[in-house]
Nucleic acid binder design. Structure first.
Lengths: 138, 138
DNA sequence: TAAATTTTGCAACCTTGTTGCAAACCAATA
DNA sequence: TATTGGTTTGCAACAAGGTTGCAAAATTTA
């Protein structure tokens, strides 16, 4: 598992640093999306705020994680599945936000339904965000 | 039309003030969603930043406008249709963000498609955000 | 019109995110 | 393993976006 993580970094041609290993591990240990603030807390304030911002940005650029648009306007990050690569995200899944515990999940098995767009508009990407109550809070 | 606007405020039990009339008029004159910054510009910097924030919050609370989650994480606001009331938003329409001009539209006539949610989750509201090119930019 | 209530503007503050730069670190090579 | 070169980190400072407390101004009610 430690091995897995270093492999991810190597495949993306990133140096192996404590910071990156730790943040990647956080994503693997949680099956939910994390915000910058979550990571700051979970990492025990061991790393600088700026470093965390830059690491997340790097991971997004390399296709390791993706961002999730949320209704309350905070940026959430989650691990990408195999299909993503540098500069090309393919996160065609639904995101679910629990109104009770605030957890954001990637519903990887739920496909984005087709949406009818009016004449004159052309669609490029579709984000679906569902609010409700999650399996742990019901 | 001036009349219409004061009626909206009265129905929501809000005092009629220059500020509220002007901001409501801005929404009626634009068929697109507006950000706080847009309103600050459009109102000719006549009102204080704080007043605009508070007015928008009041309008959201009263069900006059609704917020739109955007991928780039800025809050957008748009007029609600009749169905909304205090504390109960029913903005079950698709939002469209043009990648070229940055305009956000409410596609009122496009219904939210049904989304299959996994066992254990219960959906309450669904937001659909489509990116692409709008009718004016194609 | 006067009193009571609501709204506004100001100042100060907080949070979130960014930039420049020197020091620390990592990886590659000898 | 020591050295070198490029990358990453932490610090300080900054900027944008948003909030809060409070007194003054405007609106509503009577």
């Amino acid at each position: 598992m430690e091995q897995e993580i270093t492999d991810i970094l190597k495949q993306s041609q990133l140096s192996i640093t404590d910071n990156r290993l730790k943040i990647l591990k956080l994503f693997q240990n949680n099956d939910k999306a994390l915000s910058h603030a979550d990571i700051e807390k979970l990492s025990g304030k061991h790393f600088d705020r700026v470093t965390i911002y830059r690491t997340l940005q790097t991971f997004v650029d390399k296709g390791i994680i993706h961002t999730i648009p949320t209704a309350d306007n905070s940026i959430m990050y989650a691990l990408c599945k195999e299909a993503c690569s540098e500069g090309h995200h393919h996160d065609d899944h639904v995101h679910f936000l629990c109104d009770k515990c605030g957890t954001t999940y990637c519903l990887d098995n739920v496909n984005i339904p087709a949406v009818n767009i009016p004449k004159g508009f052309s669609a490029h990407q579709t984000n679906v965000l569902v609010n409700g109550v999650c399996k742990n809070c019901k």
